[in-house]
Design a protein around this nucleic acid. Structure first.
Lengths: 152, 152
DNA sequence: AAATGTATGTCAGAATACTGACATGGGTCA
DNA sequence: TGACCCATGTCAGTATTCTGACATACATTT
């Protein structure tokens, strides 16, 4: 099944290829994070907190590209298991600034190394110039999609 | 919250940017497919069948980047609603070749137009050469990640 | 001061995709 | 031929994420 190659423009669609690339990356990351008992969102949350301590639940949701409701579920589990801490009351507004615990930092270390190895593997066939170009192109696409739709 | 910009290498990580791009694309597609009562996987399935009639459930799963179990759930719903047909018995092996019905083709048409408009919007800021380069770079990344890990 | 708008945290329920498991069909190889 | 391996379809249960809704906190506007 599927051995015939009739004319398919899916093979030249950047949208489809983008989905394929993110799917392959997701699988590769789950492959290395799974043995560490960590999901991708779980890892993303810890990495964000390591680089920007004090982010709120909503901040983390935006950074990990999930809804704040989803992040809230994860964050409560991480808090229960002692990887992050949040104050009981908000110092200002309603936002609760979150921070990594020592345990969270330790847990992140090996995950971060594993993820870096995946990214290195993904970029093995690209030159420095290629990578810079990829950054430019992807940023351009993101920006274009984020711009409000023209309702001339 | 989040107004301080301490040193973040997430901003230069291609893995993170790839996830961001696919997330933005996903949201944009859901935005145009939702009003048509269609999910992304739903649309992907119909598009695949339009371009490669006779694909099996497992083929479709691979093409839409989900598990065959997930695709099976969707396919049964599509069959129940009259968008696709599958033979009661497999002509060879266990694979059941699936085909679009007239209703399925009709339903696909407007969805396909909507998705093309999203892709056009995404690529609005890129030249032809840019797009060709993006294809090359993303294909390279996909291939690198698919290669078995070196266990020297 | 009051009204409005925006952002946040959180609860509840629904949708979607996943992992695990099993039986079946077909090919490969000893 | 028989043993083995791989792919497929499918059932069941689990996990993750989403949408909808509500109350609260702050900024902006009137």
């Amino acid at each position: 099944m599927g051995q015939d190659d009739s004319g398919i423009h899916l093979d030249t669609s950047l949208g489809y290829l983008l989905k394929e690339a993110s799917s392959v990356l997701r699988v590769a990351m789950e492959e290395v994070l799974g043995p560490l008992g960590m999901s991708i969102t779980h890892y993303s949350c810890l990495e964000l907190l390591a680089q920007r301590p004090g982010l709120s639940n909503s901040d983390l949701a935006r950074g990990a590209f999930v809804t704040r409701q989803s992040m809230n579920v994860l964050l409560k589990a991480l808090e229960r298991d002692g990887y992050v801490t949040r104050p009981a009351a908000a110092p200002v507004g309603k936002a609760l600034p979150t921070e990594l615990t020592a345990s969270g930092r330790r847990s992140l270390e090996e995950a971060s190394a594993a993820v870096r190895s995946v990214e290195r593997r993904m970029l093995a066939g690209l030159t420095e110039a290629d990578q810079a170009e990829a950054l430019r192109l992807l940023r351009n696409m993101v920006q274009s999609l984020r711009e409000p739709v023209e309702t001339v």
